[in-house]
Design a protein around this nucleic acid. Structure first.
Lengths: 208, 208, 208, 208
DNA sequence: CTATAACCGAGACGGTACGTCAGGTCTTCGC
DNA sequence: GCGAAGACCTGACGTACCGTCTCGGTTATAG
């Protein structure tokens, strides 16, 4: 009764580890697209069938490999200021994007474009935990009255993370600490110029 | 002597059109990843070598195919209000994302993840023109004093488009008109609550 | 103490029977080449290892399966005439070759071509008993003076059975009762025309 | 206009030769059963697909390989005596069976047992030519009055060749020159003892 | 009555080969 | 001399079985 189904030989933990380790090693050398199941199997000293038995495709193996060797890399700062929290987290995120492992994340999103199943798994296993942390940060900000409460949390999160992920994927601009700071600042303050803080000024500045 | 090199048979326009048409037709049926050069060649009634001669990979063919049959789909509203302009454009963009052709854009970004060359081309041919239009909208807003001028344009654009593209690629939330409106509104107003409006001041300061 | 080695659980008769039955059933559906140990194991509700423990390869299992369910199908006529005996036996043999089980014999000979061990077993278990019977028929013929005694029995038997087995394996001609009769008649009478039946000397007519 | 269909690259003669040579080389080392398409492809320096394009299975490749490098090994003696002719030919045949290439013939017959298509091809390409030669020998014998004309040629041929092929395949007895001589002699003379050359007694009624 | 041992089913394992597919290159023609 | 057609080599695909190896569990004898 060691596992669910007791009958038959048990799944080899060594094999699983070898597969994940080999995959991770390969992922550091070349993009997921150029990695083959055969290469993983050979490097891990494992039969191809063993991989196919437990994972639907190499993307799933890669996801497991990355998740396994990377726990709790999500920074969850609690500085007392929501703006500060978001800035810190985005900075750590940006640094992660620029790291070698971070580059793999791009591959996952790319992979999800023609495998909805994988996309879903990626959201659950990768995105969700990070958003959970961010959601707490948001909640604290709302509770403390630092963030307007009339916005859905999900939208706020996308506004926080979307721009940098866009840059990560499209590569049209730099990704660095300064960007993180600027973005969060702009997001909190708004990009619209505060209409006439003065009395009796040209009120209708913005429109609406 | 029609072109630069006069000797020999000229590049067949029929072939090029047939290839692009075939590619476009296939792109409407299945994701780019599942399309093969062979399939394009066969459908176009063309040798594989002819394709390889003019395009480096199927992604480039697909890009040409999509760009060829899709001129000026980018809305460039000029309502007099930057906020309004951005809202309208984002709404049209969101509708485009949800269209069949729009789905192909995801594939292009995905393809760029392991082909920097293609990523660059995609930015130049697809992203750049759209950002040019948006940049004009932004400039008008700045000139009219509706947008703070202390922010780099590129950053503003990423804050406008990033969140919806993130949703397009990760699929973790809906993409619709209401989202566009909410996001632009939040972006202009900022998500931070105006800190402690002093006694007797115009409380809801920000707007809307 | 039932068998040689006493300790431990005894070999399961049910398993053995199930294996042989399953094999026989499969042999009636497809050639031996296309049968797999896995298929036998699954059909018999038995572990693969159990098969490997008792038989070296599927050919041996098949041989046991066929021999088990097919006792004494070899006709051993004793009509008083050797020629008649051989004719009858060859006719029954030809009918057997044309039967479904008979077709399996071809597979065994084929299997023996690259497994001398199996070829030997096949000769001992299948060929030998039949030849024993035929040898008795031949002996009776010799004793009765119907068959020339200057020929080795083995050669005679091969001359009797060889041609029809050749047809069975190469499939270049029909296999039926009439063939059996004609062949035995020709064999007994010889295919050489007795030269000069005239003029007193039937003497050296046939044979050297 | 070199071949039937002119367009496109021509079939590579080098590849075909390399494939056949490699196959022949392998056939001299191990039985056909243990040869893999992959091994042939690798040894020939050729893609697997190229083999699959032109031959349905390795058996067909092997047949072509053997036939290509082995022309006119069929002895067609014409000594003036049919018995002598058959004896000579069977002797050469027996020697061939014992040769290395001759052993491959067994494999072909074995292969034919579960591929009727191949069996047919084998008969046409291998058996038929040899039987054609033998048929001529038979005809000469009949014309000269040495062989009874009341027997179908095909049956005679099977009686000539069947026994030795049986020995080749079952391996239950030796295959040598002496056997060839004995068999042809017995076949011509018949194995039945000439019924009582005594005066006027049709005695034992064997003859039918 | 217990310990020991050989058996059993199930099934995961490292492998090998399968036959297919597509990639990208080349060769041979027709225009 | 370009462009079509298509044969070529390559290499990975995902599958099927191979024969071996744990597993947990069962049955039989030996002590």
């Amino acid at each position: 009764m060691s596992d669910a189904n007791c009958r038959g030989r048990q799944r080899s933990v060594e094999s699983e580890c070898a597969i994940l380790a080999a995959t991770l090693h390969l992922l550091k050398q070349k993009p997921l697209r150029e990695i083959t199941i055969e290469a993983i199997a050979q490097k891990a000293g494992v039969g191809k069938a063993t991989i196919y038995k437990w994972w639907p495709s190499k993307a799933y193996v890669a996801l497991d490999a990355v998740l396994g060797h990377m726990k709790a890399t999500v920074a969850a700062p609690d500085t007392g200021s929501a703006k500060q929290d978001f800035t810190e987290q985005l900075k750590s995120l940006v640094r992660f994007y620029n790291s070698r492992v971070g580059q793999i994340f791009k591959q996952f999103i790319a992979e999800g474009q023609c495998d909805p199943e994988f996309s879903k798994l990626f959201r659950e296993r990768v995105l969700a935990p990070r958003r959970e942390v961010a959601r707490a940060m948001w909640q604290r900000g709302v509770d403390r009255g630092e963030i307007t409460s009339d916005l859905e949390c999900e939208i706020v999160l996308d506004m926080v993370y979307g721009p940098s992920i866009f840059r990560l994927l499209a590569g049209h601009g730099p990704l660095n600490d300064q960007l993180a700071e600027t973005m969060i600042a702009a997001l909190f303050g708004g990009i619209g110029r505060p209409l006439a803080p003065l009395a009796g000024s040209p009120a209708t500045g913005k429109g609406e």
